[in-house]
Design a protein around this nucleic acid. Structure first.
Lengths: 160, 160
DNA sequence: TATTGTTATACTCTATAACTATA
DNA sequence: TATAGTTATAGAGTATAACAATA
């Protein structure tokens, strides 16, 4: 049986891992001039859909441990993209808000993501892109990962 | 334009990164009982196609720095899967050979990879799997990564 | 002088545990 | 007693530099 000797370059799991890493790497490079990393981009997208959330809520939404969120928000605050304000109802928590700079930066970041995707899929025809997207989504659903949650950020146990 | 607000779960680059990470993670878990990691699996596959190579040659083939190869071969030697023998032509180099244990283990590892792929693509029909594989290969070709070379192992500069 | 394999060191990232101030 | 945020610490993984033996 020749399938036994199928090389890595013909295995869908290897290709997914290879391309996944490559995409993450090149996207990070595209985003670098903006002073943010892909995970920061994800956070800004989430915050854009609802400000005032606490670090814990955001951590749950993105699938990271709150301890990691501290450092991520530190990054974004240092870059002037996020503010930690007093939470109106809970004095322990912070209410996270986007800054003006973030509102200005976000469209650029989305643009970069759109163009990056375009280039990645340059070898496919429009109909094929639609097919690919649908198949990837179907696989992602079955994978057990919540939609939009990257397992690379999904570390640490729920809590002790 | 609503495409501006397309969520991560509808972006092909995010899905590729998400699934790529997930695949690598779950494959590593499947391989763990055998005492090897995905990168070890790749090395064994390469060695199976031509023994007696030096660490440098193998490093070039897989896209890693020779300094990293030291540790990887250390792992495999410790697990009794690879032997460092004297190189017949160059006394500086080692000739790498698979052990009996490796020849016994390799088919199992390939089996695990096959089944893992099957499960990943369980939501797709046979015709779709073929399509997906073809598209991923086409994208991979355009990506600049040599076939079968994982960019996650592709670190360090060519040399100083 | 260049190359093969190796080691030492620093740096980043993640993981574990514990602490504070509130609730 | 539990929770939000934080910090300290140790452990992987990778990067940088330099080294001994041989070509």
């Amino acid at each position: 049986m020749s399938s036994t000797h199928r090389p890595l370059s013909e295995r869908a799991n290897f290709l997914l891992s290879q391309l996944g890493f490559h995409v993450a790497q090149t996207f990070a490079a595209r985003l670098a001039p903006l002073g943010i990393a892909p995970n920061h981009f994800g956070l800004l997208m989430h915050l854009d859909r609802g400000e005032g959330r606490t670090q814990q809520q955001l951590a749950d939404a993105v699938g990271v441990h709150r301890k990691v969120m501290v450092g991520l928000i530190d990054d974004l605050e240092r870059r002037g993209l996020v503010e930690r304000r007093r939470h109106p109802a809970d004095r322990r928590a912070h209410a996270l808000h986007l800054t003006e700079a973030a509102r200005e930066l976000l469209p650029h970041a989305r643009d970069i993501a759109d163009r990056h995707e375009d280039e990645m899929l340059a070898g496919l025809e429009p109909a094929e892109r639609t097919q690919l997207l649908a198949m990837l989504q179907r696989i992602a659903e079955r994978s057990g990962n919540p939609p939009g949650v990257h397992p690379g950020l999904r570390h640490a146990t729920p809590d002790t």
